[in-house]
Design a protein around this nucleic acid. Sequence first.
DNA 1: AATTTTATGTTATTTTTTTAACAAAACTTG
DNA 2: CAAGTTTTGTTAAAAAAATAACATAAAATT
Lengths: 226, 226
Amino acid sequence: MKVKNYYKNLPHKTIERLSQYRRALLICLENGKTHIFSHEIASIQHITPVQVRRDLMLIGYSGTLRKGYNIQDLIDVISNIIDDEAGIKAAVVGMGNLGRALLKYIRGKRHKLEVVVGFDTSEDKIGKQYNGITCYSLDDLDRVVKEKDIKLAILTVPAAYSNDVADKLVKAGIKGILNYTPKPIRVPDEVYLEEYDMITTLEKVAFYIKMHQEEEEEEQQHSHDA
Amino acid sequence: MKVKNYYKNLPHKTIERLSQYRRALLICLENGKTHIFSHEIASIQHITPVQVRRDLMLIGYSGTLRKGYNIQDLIDVISNIIDDEAGIKAAVVGMGNLGRALLKYIRGKRHKLEVVVGFDTSEDKIGKQYNGITCYSLDDLDRVVKEKDIKLAILTVPAAYSNDVADKLVKAGIKGILNYTPKPIRVPDEVYLEEYDMITTLEKVAFYIKMHQEEEEEEQQHSHDA
DNA sequence: AATTTTATGTTATTTTTTTAACAAAACTTG
DNA sequence: CAAGTTTTGTTAAAAAAATAACATAAAATT
Ligand SMILES: NC(=O)c1ccc[n+]([C@@H]2O[C@H](COP(=O)([O-])OP(=O)(O)OC[C@H]3O[C@@H](n4cnc5c(N)ncnc54)[C@H](O)[C@@H]3O)[C@@H](O)[C@H]2O)c1
Ligand SMILES: NC(=O)c1ccc[n+]([C@@H]2O[C@H](COP(=O)([O-])OP(=O)(O)OC[C@H]3O[C@@H](n4cnc5c(N)ncnc54)[C@H](O)[C@@H]3O)[C@@H](O)[C@H]2O)c1
């Protein structure tokens, strides 16, 4: 029976929530708490306690009845699942406004997930340090990725270059890409790809604001009719 | 029969994809194309053509058999659904590294969705202009939000202040919040909330890199056994 | 000691989202 | 012009995710 890949079948959403649970748990631990109930975790994440318990069931973690979950234990269990033992090294590709902001933000946040270099094509940036991280030329991508065993790339180049740079990343042996470029990229199946577009999210918020507005208008109409 | 709120029941995911379709369509239009097939849209977004057609069916848009969809028409239809006629005004709250990067990025991208001001508490930033946008003191939130009819807030303050500032935004009458802070905030039901955490996404990518690694190790094991 | 309360863990159900199946129409080709 | 191909639009099925239901046990209360 497979043991190692047991967690492979966890729902994607559960993986996301595990990361969020851990972040919340770390804060609770700092505040001196030792145990936590499913409804407390749920409240922080504004989800239901059932969902929390179900996620924890899926990873096979058990709490204590009427006492809740041991925070340190749970952090360790989650870390064992989502963290790579040897740690995963990442690169920020495209050290512009967003790239530098991200670099600064991520730096030092996670023990097993570290941004170790940046890449850019601008002479102004190549060779410079940002938050203690060296920016290399994109021409050195292959070499640096291999030398430093970088597996993850955060893509923040101008949209026009997304695909070109993505191809280079794949060739260099990158295993996962987080694409913040508004242009969807194409990568082989064995490279894990996650894309996020801020405009889309923003437009979604705007849409639901609009919907809510229209609902209210309609309600007013009704009360006027009555 | 309700007409105005017909689109209220569209799946959330469809709304997201509509925004993405439009972005892709705008690029196609610029390139001089007039018509597009569902499989072309699908290929850009790396989803299936069926999903594209299903989404378009849901919004009641019809293409031409064997000719595809009229790009300009479709853009207009999507815009009619997701854009607010009067336009929605947004504020960036917390003009730090991320806030300024976002402001610069969003500026001028969409006709009906505009960032019109920034807010901060730092004396260094209050009164300054960033990309032509004035940064106001958080103390002026109520006044400015009302004066300029701002409905959407992009929250990029330090995590420690997320909740405080969110409360103020709600009191000021903001209708939707996009929270980039790693701390989930609580808002009343009538305020639409979208949260996004980069660390979570990053950890998700790292997790699937790890999983893929372990799968490969196992395969090697097997071929060794055989 | 019996009863009530509070939480967990699991199975069942519902909802949401994606994918598949296929009929119908328009064009192409032999 | 008949047969085949392509592409849409829709209904049906499957898969994924969230929610509900509930049995169980520890602690608190009566
Ligand atoms: N700024 C934001 O908040 C934001 C938000 C969402 C998405 N984005 C997207 O992220 C990307 C970067 O945005 P930005 O605001 O940081 O832009 P930016 O212009 O500030 O930064 C782009 C950087 O990429 C570098 N670059 C150019 N070509 C390159 C290449 N081939 N390889 C490596 N580096 C290269 C440039 O020298 C520059 O440093 C864009 O695609 C943008 O659409 C930005
Ligand atoms: N930098 C990133 O790429 C990144 C990525 C994801 C999330 N975040 C999150 O976004 C937030 C901002 O990150 P940052 O890197 O821009 O930080 P930053 O320190 O550069 O910016 C924070 C800004 O908020 C201002 N501020 C402080 N208190 C405020 C208040 N009460 N009201 C309004 N403004 C206030 C500060 O003066 C500063 O200008 C943080 O919560 C961070 O965790 C940042």
